[in-house]
């Protein structure tokens, strides 16, 4: 979107610096913050997965928490009562289950557009919520415990001990880097461009011969599977799954992360996750009614920072920045405004 993106500082130095900080972090801060960082990365992967359909596809989904929670439940259901499950077995099972459900829901929901799509995804997401909430097979509304974390055993050797916060953190970091790589590749591929073309002008993209329904369905399924990957690790971290994990409030929180980080980059939602979870930590420690403050902040961000916290950056360095103010970032995205007009 912006020309200066190509500068070497942005493309190599900054990511390298961030990666170095991420790698050194567990040796610099107390264990509590290592666990917090793992949580940020996990929910960041969920938000990045969601942003593939929201940012690149222009489709506001409110059921991604359902894929996230479903994968967690798959792990809980496949885990033996007291023994650890096999990572090699449960991880693919969880991701495939999330992707398969996303495929079915996507095939139905993508028949609709705009606000219908939001309502339909919300309804199907809640269907899964009530399925796990009302059914007995997974603890009902109480949820289910995962007593032993899954282990990776190859040729009789136990390779990863996910019980150790440090090991868990590095595994999650690797997953996050993998997700960033995959999503960057997707967004830059012809597939990603076609997805964006369908977002910007569906009629024109269709006229150009793109199979829009199929492209969107693939994106939705991949995004659901990736949300499942995040949910699998979330279930491991908490050692517990509950129906709330699938509920639409969780989906909305992921959308807030996407908005805070900005929709136009792959890693933006990761920053959104860091900002929102950091904010929650501070608010929880300070106020009893912290959700009230959080709600007000969410409203303020929507009204004042339609392009996320990155908007604060040019403001903060405004005087020192020789470049003129970038109107394209401050104004609400004109490309998508007409969509709301006809309904």
């Amino acid at each position: 979107m912006t020309k200066e993106r190509a500068s070497p500082i942005r493309t190599t130095v900054l990511p390298a610096l961030i990666l170095a900080v991420a790698l050194a972090l567990p040796f610099l801060v107390p264990q509590y913050y290592v666990q917090f960082a793992s949580k940020v990365l996990i929910l960041g992967v969920l938000a990045m997965a969601l942003n593939l359909v929201v940012g690149q596809g222009g489709l506001v989904s409110l059921c991604h928490a359902a894929f996230f929670g479903l994968a967690g439940y798959v792990l809980a259901l496949l885990s033996p009562k007291y023994d650890p499950a096999s990572l090699l077995l449960t991880l693919p099972a969880a991701v495939i289950a999330a992707g398969a459900v996303a495929l079915v829901i996507g095939a139905l929901a993508l028949r609709t557009r705009g606000v219908y799509f939001i309502m339909v995804t919300l309804a199907f997401g809640e269907m899964l919520f009530y399925l796990f909430h009302d059914a007995d097979f997974a603890g009902g509304s109480d949820g289910a415990f995962i007593n032993a974390k899954p282990e990776l055993v190859i040729a009789g050797v136990r390779l990863l001990d996910l019980d150790k916060p440090l090991v868990f953190y590095f595994v999650v970091l690797a997953v996050t880097i993998g997700a960033v790589g995959l999503l960057t590749m997707l967004v830059r591929s012809p597939f990603g461009h076609a997805l964006a073309a369908a977002r910007d002008n569906e009629r024109r993209a269709r006229a150009l011969g793109f199979p829009i329904f199929r492209i969107r369905l693939i994106a939705f399924t991949l995004s659901g599977a990736l949300a499942g990957l995040a949910g699998y690790f979330a279930a491991i971290q908490f050692g517990f799954v509950a129906p709330q994990m699938l509920g639409w409030h969780q989906s909305a929180v992921a959308l807030v992360m996407v908005l805070i980080g900005g929709l136009s980059t792959v890693t933006g939602p990761l920053i959104g996750a860091l900002v929102l979870l950091g904010l929650e930590e501070v608010l929880k420690a300070t106020f009893e009614q912290w959700k009230l403050i959080e709600g007000i902040i969410v409203i303020a961000i929507v009204l004042l920072l339609p392009n996320g916290v990155r908007q604060l950056w040019p403001m903060a360095v405004g005087e020192a920045d020789p470049k003129p103010a970038r109107d394209d970032k401050v104004a609400p995205s004109p490309a998508r405004a007409p969509e709301t007009g006809h309904a």
Partner: peptide, 30 residues
């Protein structure tokens, strides 16, 4: 609040009303 949403995209509307839910829930609690 709501009048600022006319013409904004659906994401903004979804998130602003989600923020309202959080506020209403807490006010109800108080």
């Amino acid at each position: 609040f709501i009048r600022w949403l006319y013409g904004r995209d659906h994401l903004a509307q979804v998130l602003l009303s989600f923020g309202l839910i959080l506020v209403i829930d807490e006010v109800r609690q108080l």
